[in-house]
């Protein structure tokens, strides 16, 4: 593989590590954006330039920005970071981490069982992706549309503030 892959992979892993160890949520989010960008590079190298673009635009661009705005809206400041510091004690993270390392070991072991000859990366055109999307996967695409719709409606419904009063005469009555 390219050295570029290793660099990108190293950046992705390192920045993800930074994400999961930050106390301040804003820092973590920014590191996550870096991580996502690094993954976008990796995607590009795996012959999926369109996916890389989507990664940057949708993930790093839209979703992360949404999260950042949300955090800003809640105005989580220093006390939140202090609390996070209080929670992240080795006593708490050591067992889950060991468990996950075991899982990783198993995954690595399984991945390394691949005995196929070394071959180059096959590039899949965005056109093929499009053909697949609107060919055999058309139903799934429609379902995804419905899912997004449901997400919008759900977010609107859940995010709505509870209306406290119906009328000024009924101010003291809970609805």
């Amino acid at each position: 593989m390219d050295p570029a892959f290793y660099i990108a992979a190293a950046i992705a892993i390192l920045s993800t590590l930074m994400v999961i160890t930050r106390y301040n949520i804003m820092h973590a989010l920014l590191y996550l954006v870096v991580s996502l960008l690094a993954v976008a590079v990796v995607l590009y190298m795996y012959g999926a330039p369109f996916m890389a673009a989507l990664e940057v635009i949708v993930y790093a661009g839209a979703i992360m920005v949404l999260l950042i705005f949300f955090v800003m809206m809640l105005n989580l400041g220093k006390e939140s970071a202090e609390r996070e510091r209080g929670w992240l004690k080795p006593r708490i993270w050591i067992f889950p981490s060991l468990l996950c390392i075991i899982l990783l070991g198993e995954l690595v072991f399984l991945v390394l069982q691949n005995r196929q000859p070394v071959s180059d990366v096959i590039i899949v055109n965005p056109k093929d992706v499009g053909m697949a999307l609107f060919g055999p996967y058309i139903i799934a695409v429609e379902l995804t549309g419905i899912l997004l719709m449901a997400g919008i409606v759900g977010a609107y419904h859940l995010g709505r503030q509870k209306q406290k009063t119906l009328h000024r005469f009924l101010e003291n009555t809970e609805v």
Binding site: P96, L99, I102, L103, E106, L107, F109, L110
Partner: peptide, 20 residues
């Protein structure tokens, strides 16, 4: 979530044990 992870570890362990 810990339960889910434990389950995943267990299933993968059994899988590896049986196959490899």
């Amino acid at each position: 979530i810990l339960g889910v992870v434990l389950g995943a570890v267990a299933i993968l362990s059994v899988l590896i044990w049986r196959i490899y």
